[in-house]
Write a protein that binds this DNA or RNA. Structure first.
Lengths: 209, 209
DNA sequence: CGACAGTACTGGACAGTCCAGTTTTTCGGC
DNA sequence: GCCGAAAAACTGGACTGTCCAGTACTGTCG
């Protein structure tokens, strides 16, 4: 045995991961109250007792699952980091950035997660705040940093880069995200996203030179 | 007796109203799953049986309560209607409009209601859609109408008035509404609202002349 | 033996019903 | 218009059935 690679997470760790994975899936799909511990155990291929061996109770499991998703924002931040400071292709570059933003943030899983956090922000206030700060605000800040750089290069005029970042996201995301929050997100088409991205980037440039 | 005015709603009607009022309050405060029919009956000062006499079940009651709130958007639409077409005071007028928009839409009750609808959009897809169309989109359309007029007057250049309306709301509302959705809405100060409104209106005008 | 699966169990919460008795409304006869 | 009886609405509380978080117990595999 031990035919498995050098990377051996240990039985316990593997179970742990299986549980969090399953829990994430079920919570996202059915919401907090709609999810039973039996569902999670079953999907994880694990007995309920094992679930309780790893997580004291349902609330803790939920918190862990939600908080764990904030690491995905790093990819988002990288995305923002590499906007080249080139006057000739500024609009093109911002449009591309906008497009990727939209693409990422309108993915059903992301929207579902967003819904999940909002829905339970009452019962788990800490969680809502943490998610907002570690996810939302971090992206916003890196976006602000990007605009600050472009301003330093003379390509943009953003006295208040954070406000600019807010405006950028607002122009882009208000419509599609809201529609998805209320109606059951019928997955926007690529063409729609292109249009939103182009219009948003154009408007943004009209404001911030 | 009958010292009461000519307008006497009758007992049944009064109870009905008491129930919807109580239900609205409790649903908004505690969410759908967090609310029990006993809570509602108690707050309404009514027996549970009476609640079931007026509403077949919890879901129906919830639907009725939520849908009933969409009539408030009329006030919002009136607000949009009377933006005077005056070049000299255009920025001032739009800033005022923006300010009132923010004021209205960041009120805790409105935000809570929004949260309530989003949270249960999975379980009540019809409801989410209806609320979006009858509330959200109606305001957006009247805003678009306003911009269309201003464009006709030559004060604005909005080829696509609906897009302009979306941009207007996005610039204004993205930040404060999101913050409120995730963190427990600590009620924005008047100064903050002023700032957001001014910045939003200014940005909007930079785009749409 | 120790970690786990499987399953049965406990206790509490809650939607919705039932019933026995009370109040309010309705309405026809005077 | 007033009266009294039937009809309808309401109260309070007990009750049913179900769902589910969390626990306990038994058997099994390594």
């Amino acid at each position: 045995m031990s035919g498995t690679e050098t990377r051996e997470p240990g039985r316990s760790a593997r179970k742990h991961q299986a549980i969090t994975r399953a829990a994430t899936a079920v919570f996202v799909e059915r919401g907090y109250p709609g999810t039973t511990m039996d569902d999670i155990a079953k999907l994880a291929g694990v007995s309920k007792q094992t679930v309780y061996k790893h997580f004291v109770d349902k609330e803790t499991l939920f918190a862990e699952v939600v908080l764990a998703t904030t690491d995905r924002v790093d990819a988002m931040i990288d995305l923002v980091a590499d906007v080249p400071a080139d006057a000739a292709t500024l609009e093109e570059n911002l449009t591309r950035l906008a497009r990727r933003f939209l693409e990422t943030l309108t993915r059903p899983e992301v929207l579902q997660l967003r819904r999940l956090v909002i829905a339970n922000a009452d019962t788990f206030p800490k969680l809502g705040t943490a998610w907002y700060e570690q996810g939302f605000e971090r992206v916003l800040e890196s976006l602000a940093g990007c605009f600050r750089n472009l301003t330093a290069e003379g390509l943009l005029h953003a006295e208040d880069p954070l406000l600019a970042a807010n405006h950028f996201s607002g122009l882009l995301l208000w419509i599609p995200v809201n529609k998805a929050m209320f109606t059951g997100a019928p997955r926007h088409t690529a063409a729609e996203l292109d249009r939103y991205a182009a219009a948003g980037a154009r408007a943004f440039l009209a404001v911030y030179r």
